[in-house]
C-alpha cells in the first residue's frame, strides 16, 4: 500500500513456475487491496440475501414479540414489553407441548441412533448387491415429510389401515384398534415411529461414512489378540465413531425439537392436544389465533432452548474429541 504501483500490472501467465497455492489465503494482506475488495463485492449478494431472508425477519420477529400484534397487517400496535413472554410461560398448554416435544425428541433421537448404528453395520458389510441395499435404505429419507406423514396416517387408519389388517390377520391383536385417535400417548408414539422410519436412514448414512474411515487393520489386530466381534464393536467401532455420533445427535436433536410437519399431517395436534409440540403450538398461536406476538415470543423461546442444546452438545463433543484416540 505504501508505494502504489502507477498502473495495475497486467496479469502475467505463470510461465514455468507452478502456480503458488495463493488461493488458500484469499484475504492475505499481501494479495493486495483489489482482491479483498473483489472478494467483498462477490460476497455482497449473498450477504444481502442472508440479511433479507434471515436476519431481517428474525429481527422483526423479535421486535414483534415485544408488541401486541394481533393482525397480519403492518400498523401501530401497543408496546407490551415482556408481557407476551410471561403470559405464554404461564400457559399450561405450553408446558404440555414442552412435555410432548421433549418426549418426542429423546425417544425418536435415541431410537434413530440405535437403529441407525445397526443399519450402518449392515450396510458396511461386504455383501453382494450392496449398492442396491444402500439405495433402498436411503429411500425413506428421500421422501418428503408431508408424504411420509400422509402415508403413516393411512397405514394407521383405524378403519381401513394396513397396520390393523396385518396385525389382526397375524393374530397379534384381537380386533381393529385406534392408533392415532383414542389414546394421546399412543398417538405420540406413533408419530415417533413415523419419524424414526424416515430419519433412521440419514443417521445410518452418517455413521456409515464414519465406519468406512476405520482402518481394517485395527479389527485384524483385535482378532489376533483374541477379541470377539462384540468386544471389537465396543472397543474399536464405537469409540472411533464418537465424532460421527455426536454430529448426528446434534443434527437430529435440533431437528426433532423443531418437529412440525409430520404432526400437522398425521394428527393435527390431537387427540386431546396430546401430540401438540412447541412449534405446532407456536403455529396455532400465530396463524390460527392471530396472536402474532405470542407466536414470535414462543419462537424466540424455542431459539434459546435450541441454542442451549447446541452449546451443550458442542461442549460434549469437544470433551469426546479430547478423549478419543
Amino acid at each position: 500500500m505504501s508505494a502504489a504501483p502507477p498502473a495495475r500490472p497486467a496479469p502475467t501467465p505463470p510461465a514455468t513456475r507452478p502456480a503458488r497455492p495463493a488461493r488458500r489465503r484469499p484475504f492475505a494482506r499481501r494479495a493486495g487491496g483489489g482482491q479483498t475488495r473483489l472478494a467483498l463485492l462477490l460476497l455482497l449478494p449473498a450477504a444481502l440475501v442472508v440479511f433479507g431472508v434471515v436476519l431481517y425477519p428474525a429481527g422483526r420477529a423479535l421486535v414483534i414479540s415485544f408488541y401486541d400484534v394481533d393482525s397480519p397487517f403492518p400498523g401501530r400496535y401497543p408496546f407490551v414489553g415482556l408481557r407476551n413472554y410471561t403470559e405464554i410461560l404461564a400457559d399450561d398448554r405450553l408446558w404440555a407441548a414442552v412435555g410432548h416435544t421433549t418426549y418426542f425428541t429423546l425417544v425418536s433421537t435415541a431410537l434413530e441412533l440405535v437403529l441407525g448404528l445397526g443399519l450402518a453395520q449392515l450396510l458396511a458389510a461386504p455383501i453382494r448387491l450392496r449398492w442396491l441395499f444402500r439405495a433402498i435404505v436411503i429411500l425413506p429419507w428421500a421422501l418428503p415429510t408431508i408424504v411420509n406423514g400422509a402415508m403413516w396416517r393411512w397405514i394407521l387408519n383405524a378403519q381401513y389401515g394396513v397396520a390393523n389388517a396385518l396385525l389382526t390377520q397375524l393374530h397379534l391383536q384381537g380386533d381393529y384398534r385406534s392408533w392415532l385417535g383414542n389414546d394421546p400417548f399412543l398417538a405420540l408414539n406413533m408419530v415417533v415411529v413415523a419419524d424414526v422410519w424416515k430419519n433412521t436412514s440419514l443417521v445410518a448414512f452418517f455413521l456409515l461414512a464414519g465406519l468406512q474411515t476405520i482402518p481394517r487393520g485395527l479389527y485384524e489386530a483385535a482378532r489376533v489378540d483374541g477379541a470377539g466381534p462384540i468386544r471389537a464393536f465396543f472397543r474399536i467401532t464405537l469409540p472411533l465413531l464418537v465424532p460421527n455420533i455426536a454430529l448426528v445427535l446434534v443434527l437430529r436433536t435440533i431437528e426433532a425439537f423443531k418437529v412440525f410437519d409430520i404432526v400437522y399431517v398425521m394428527t393435527g395436534g390431537g387427540p386431546a392436544s396430546g401430540t401438540q409440540t412447541i412449534t405446532f403450538f407456536t403455529y396455532l398461536q400465530a396463524f390460527s389465533a392471530q396472536r402474532f406476538s405470542s407466536g414470535a415470543s414462543l419462537a424466540y423461546l424455542t431459539v434459546v432452548a435450541i441454542l442451549l442444546l447446541a452449546l451443550l452438545y458442542l461442549r460434549l463433543l469437544r470433551q469426546s474429541e479430547l478423549m478419543s484416540p
Binding site: 436476519l55 431481517y56 428474525a58 429481527g59 422483526r60 400498523g75 401501530r76
Partner: peptide, 14 residues
C-alpha cells in the same frame, strides 16, 4: 442484525 431490524416497529402506516 436484529438491532438493525428493530428500527422498524410494525411498518410505518399510521
Amino acid at each position: 442484525g436484529l438491532l438493525l431490524a428493530a428500527c422498524d416497529v410494525g411498518g410505518g402506516s399510521d
